[in-house]
Design a protein around this nucleic acid. Structure first.
Lengths: 227, 227
DNA sequence: TATTGTAAGATTGGATCCAATTTACAATAT
DNA sequence: ATATTGTAAATTGGATCCAATCTTACAATA
């Protein structure tokens, strides 16, 4: 299998846990764009010192979730239709390309992994799992699709783009509708993937991302027009 | 002008200086792939504590220049033909796309900026400036081309990809030859850019990056075959 | 009333110190 | 000789403390 095999016991550093904690709050929307993140407050909340908080914030800045200004601290990155376009366009350039490369290398096991993660997403939707869990499974599906391409660099880029894109996906007005559409598209994607039809998969993936982007951008434009 | 205007007086943090220092050593090849970076050693060298060194290393990890493993410290990322392909392919997906978007928005000032940075690169080559300076000017040219697209996210990705790509460019056997070729291609790029021919510019840029990649990959493959 | 100056508090950046983990190496057993 | 175990040194991760900078409140002046 071409997927990355994680070490059995990966020592979790406090910095990593803090980063995950803050990222979760930002992606969930609990910390909206513009929110000031106070190191001391987070540190007290989690019962740690400010050092791991600062280091976590540096990582989140690299992920584009926060903006750090010298001696002024970290602020949650603002959402905007322009940013969404930037973000989703970058995904559209990278993901379909990776999907084609992945298909060219995918083993039967890799294809089985895609199917498994598709089904997991399916089940989670029918069970009405939390947005966070659905997002995790959606990402797992995309990962399974692209991982066989064996492009760790590109995957790292796609991963950071996705975590920001996730913020936008979470503010959709009709998530259930979007999820149902995503699920249908996942099925089509898997069908083309299984047949090892690279061009078809790439095209479907492009449309999958572009459609989600259109939905989000038009929604954002409306709220921006009001403000 | 659509280019990002930097603040006149940006307070430089020690962490940022350390990051720049280490990045310079890695890109120049002074720290080869696999080299262990000892926090204490860097700290002593620069007369600072280990804190800014650690934070700098975190940023370099986000840039893909080092790999950090828990309690084992930072190691300079290894170079390989596979990694080069990964890297340059990602650039090929993103940069031509951004170039087209940039042309669609470029003002006369923006075009003048491209010309200025092209000439600066030209002059620097004729003067036999240092690899570091040439690299800086080459990046300035690419930045000038793409910046008018107004895609800060994508630009941030391209910037990190470029800094890693730079490591590969620096180990070319015949840099003078590569530079001369790059210069000719820059002239062609600028010509198409000035005419606002998006498709032509994108095509030339794709080829510009792909050719450099081919050169590097074939060279790496040879040295990998030996090892 | 608006503007400028100033001082106190809040907050971040960096240094020093301590704890936890890894690595190097010697001693022992197979 | 090789493998294994145990211990000390080296190194990183995190906490606490200090310094530099920013923000805010408020008074003095135009």
């Amino acid at each position: 299998m071409a997927t990355t095999n994680k070490p059995l016991l990966q020592r979790q550093t406090v910095t990593a846990m803090v980063a995950e904690y803050i990222a979760g709050l930002i992606i969930a929307g609990d910390y909206p764009g513009g929110h000031q993140i106070r190191q001391e407050a987070i540190a007290a909340e989690l019962g740690v010192s400010r050092i791991p908080v600062r280091e976590a914030l540096l990582q989140l800045e690299a992920d584009g979730l926060v903006v750090i200004r010298t001696h002024r601290g970290a602020v949650v990155a603002e959402l905007s239709s322009d940013d969404a376009i930037d973000l989703f366009d970058a995904r559209i350039q990278l993901e379909p390309f990776l999907a084609e490369k992945a298909i060219a290398r995918a083993s039967e096991d890799d294809i089985a992994t895609v199917e498994t993660s598709m089904r997991a997403y399916e089940v989670a939707i029918s069970r009405g799992e939390s947005p966070k869990e659905l997002s995790r499974l959606n990402w797992a599906f995309h990962t399974a699709l692209l991982e066989p391409a064996m492009r760790p660099r590109s995957m790292a880029v796609v991963r950071t783009l996705y975590s920001s894109a996730d913020r936008y996906l979470r503010l959709q007005i009709e998530p259930a509708k979007a999820q149902a559409k995503a699920l249908r598209e996942h099925r089509d994607l898997f069908d083309a993937y299984r047949r090892k039809d690279g061009a078809q998969t790439a095209g479907l993936l492009r449309k999958h991302i572009a459609d989600a982007a259109d939905e989000i951008v038009s929604q954002l434009r409306k709220s921006e027009a009001v403000a």
